[in-house]
């Protein structure tokens, strides 16, 4: 099998006393697209957010088990969460550009990393926007407000902003669920491009999207990982009845 980028061992998560993730074991391969699917409320977002420790921001979350990235358990006591998040970037369901210019949005990450020379920033901004396939659309208005872009452009801007920090892993939580079909297909193409360089994990409700974009698919149900396999196998010949029912749209 391919190289493993993220290894999850016996991961359990509670919100207060409610278990949201139960005993998850999983190996996510490097430079591949892994899709998380499952009915609403089954814990996909929760799981995704354990991978860059975004859940730390919520009170009352209790996490047991291990998430090993590049051989390090990110729940170790002396892990540097700030640097971890630079390595594991995240794209949210609702695009959330800052109320700043396009340029300042992309330059945000480099700047907090101490890069301040104008030409260097220019280069990174241009490169990231090109990587996110939005350069041609915004190069004429880099200094306009990011909020003036269309929804799809905003989401690709958010991707560019994440790329500018140069992560290894990119987590995407339903990145296209709020977008029209054309914008969605642009994002999907982009994901295809990006997996040359990045390990991508994407949550989606759209079965076609999972089938089209991902190499591996994981199906979650009620906080448990029901099945995890190559996407072709999952969609053609699922091992579990629940998976088959879900994929074929019989529930959820």
């Amino acid at each position: 099998m391919d190289d493993i980028k993220v290894k999850i061992n016996d991961l359990t998560l509670h919100y207060g006393t409610n278990p949201a993730l139960k005993n998850i074991n999983m190996e996510i391969p490097e430079k591949m697209v892994t899709a998380f699917i499952g009915p609403s409320g089954c814990g996909k977002s929760t799981f995704l957010r354990t991978l860059n420790r975004m859940n730390d921001l919520i009170d009352n979350v209790k996490i047991d088990g291990e998430v090993i990235i590049d051989g390090l358990n990110i729940y170790n006591k002396d892990i540097d969460v700030v640097n971890l998040r630079k390595k594991v970037g995240m794209i949210f369901q609702k695009s959330n550009p800052f109320a700043k210019s396009v340029y300042d949005n992309v330059a945000f990450g480099p700047r907090i990393n101490g890069i301040s020379q104008r030409n260097k920033l220019d280069e990174i901004v241009e490169y990231s926007l090109k990587q996110a396939a939005i350069w041609d659309e915004v190069k004429g208005r880099l200094h306009n407000s990011a909020l003036s872009l269309s929804g799809g452009q905003q989401q690709r801007l958010c991707i560019a902003r994440t790329l500018a920090v140069n992560p290894d892993i990119i987590l995407m939580d339903e990145p296209a669920s709020a977008l029209d079909p054309i914008s969605t297909s642009k994002i999907e193409e982009l994901i295809h491009e990006l997996k040359q360089q990045y390990t991508i994990i994407i949550v989606t409700h759209n079965m076609q999207q999972a089938a089209r974009t991902s190499d591996f698919t994981a199906f979650f149900y009620l906080g448990e990982l029901v099945e995890f396999n190559k996407t072709e196998v999952m969609f053609s010949n699922p091992a579990k009845r629940q998976t088959e029912d879900y994929i074929s749209g019989r529930f959820g």
Partner: peptide, 12 residues
Amino acid sequence: SAKEVVSFNKRK
């Protein structure tokens, strides 16, 4: 070069 700087094994 940026990648080398970013390691999270030790709290900074």
